[in-house]
Amino acid sequence: MRNVTQTSPSRVASLKERLRAGGSSRRLYETLRHHWADYGVIVAFIVLVIITASTSDVFFTERNISNLLRQIVPNGLISLGMLVVILTGGIDLSVGSIVALAGILSAGLQDDIPLALAILIALAAGVVAGAVNGVLIARFKLAPFIVTLATLGAIRGLVYVYSDTPQSPTNPAFRRILGGSVGGIAGSLAVATVIMVICYPIIWFFLNRTSAGRAIFAIGGNEEAVRLAGINVERHILAAYIISGLCSAMAGVLLAARLGIAQPSLGSGYELDAIAAAVIGGAILGGGGGSVPGTFGGVLVLGLINNLLNLYNVQSYYQQILKGVIIVFAVLARRKQQ
């Protein structure tokens, strides 16, 4: 059917003008209020940087920064997938096991088959794992928590069945390329970091500028309303878990390349950091809120805390306590905002 009620672009533009003119300061205030959570993360980030920079002379060294950016890659990727899942109102606890599955497959298979194929199979395994989660949740209407708790265990078991000993990558190109650095002016910027950074605008575009992305946002707010708007909800939920599986698999492959070894225990407990990053970045468990920039902020804040406390040789137990405190504050701040 053709568009009958065409409104000319110029008329729309002039109306937009008028809207903007009618209370621009109020609009700014509204925007600030609306995005408090995003900015809250930025504030936390800046405060952390200032504290660290003023107390440590190691922090701003090229070595430390590139280390930091390298360390946040796994959580950066997993959190991105986790965000998509959380937006639908779900949760993915199986990400850590998928990291191990992809890591150990990419490291173990490259002995027998070409490297590219090994990596492809590892990523495909992540997609399949995500699809299994998605089908059980969307099609069979099982609770996401239960389903991914089950696959968390099952996939970890599968990893041990495949190999209960660490797999070492035999193809030198694996470590050299994926575990290496970008040359030139970027100096010691890791390839893995570049890959992760590229994923952010892609997912942002997907969520904000595609019909599927908007539907995913809406599903978390009110699944039934979306279904009754004539949208195939099952397919979108399935897509969300596949994205999460793929992101985790990428994290697994890059992690194996960086470490030069893939333990079957790789990635245990990663789901917690990913959930934490998304929540610090403003995501609402149960759906209905969250953003890509916010999640990136959450990843950075968590990475900085680790980095900072490492610089001061603080035991990792304290890091966990601090992380817990920050998560609680992030959620409280959001509550206050509402």
């Binding site: 595609t210 009110n222 039934e224 949208i231 209905g288």
Partner: peptide
């Protein structure tokens, strides 16, 4: 309960049933 997505904007809610008509190759 089943008409609005309260956490979404006016824009998202009004276009919810017409998303596919407003996009090409899935891009809005």
């Amino acid at each position: 309960r089943n008409g609005l997505v309260m956490t979404c904007s006016i824009r998202d809610n009004i276009s919810l049933a017409s998303l596919s008509r407003m996009s090409r190759w899935g891009v809005l």
